[in-house]
Design a protein around this nucleic acid. Sequence first.
DNA 1: TATTGTTATACTCTATAACTATA
DNA 2: TATAGTTATAGAGTATAACAATA
Lengths: 144, 144
Amino acid sequence: MTGTARTDTAQLMELLSVSLASYYGEFTVAAASENLTASQGKTLTVLRRGAASMSALATTLTCDASNMTGIVDRLEKRGLVRREPSPSDRRVKNVALTADGERVIDTIRGRMQHTVAGLERLDVQERETLSVLLERVFVERPAT
Amino acid sequence: MTGTARTDTAQLMELLSVSLASYYGEFTVAAASENLTASQGKTLTVLRRGAASMSALATTLTCDASNMTGIVDRLEKRGLVRREPSPSDRRVKNVALTADGERVIDTIRGRMQHTVAGLERLDVQERETLSVLLERVFVERPAT
DNA sequence: TATTGTTATACTCTATAACTATA
DNA sequence: TATAGTTATAGAGTATAACAATA
């Protein structure tokens, strides 16, 4: 056989499914407590890493570019993001978090008490190990 | 200070966010290839673990019970799930996967090549470690 | 009285297609 | 010609409130 009952790929996919549903469910509730939808919250999460064009946002969020117009419209109307013209390409609009937007997304993350408590159950070495493994699975690109 | 730059809670939350986006993005694309929305796919994922009532589904999917009616309606119309009356409580309807529904959700998971390949980058010991850590963070309940 | 599932409603998300401005 | 962003449209997801059937 190619793996134990506990750690074969299908079992790990299932555990990932449960784990990420837990994270996403708690994120959705936390976003709602700030009167934001999950998609609006996810947009703020991406922008927390830095400003991005409309099309870059759509790519990162795995949705069609036309969706971003409405989502960013609503976030902008609430003063959480702002559109800025790109200096180098007049077609492009860069979207950036405002100070209010930063505050709101940080508040949302802070309210994810179940996830935060789960992470704080790990000691320093375990955190490092989890970090390395998640990077291996989701971030690293296989050599071509 | 309370942690290293790499493994403090905020950093791990960010890495989880990236991991979730990768998993969820690939899941959404795979579900779309079977003409299913992400919510429909997530419903099949939950039912793969066993039949559940409408309200239990809503709880697991972190949404209002009224949403489940339409989602299950569409899945039932395609023959992927079926509603069955509960033997013990005549108010309750249990939803179960059909053989077709099982086939479809297994196909969707099989199409998540990036995630599958990421997991298969890990050796047996690493898989076991990841499994234990995810259970610690997301599944275990703290003693009261 | 409380719970389960449904319906009606209003708003948001989503993909597709067509459009304008710019490259 | 191709790309960035927007608009229009239709179908789906979402929470709220109200309802009938059942517990």
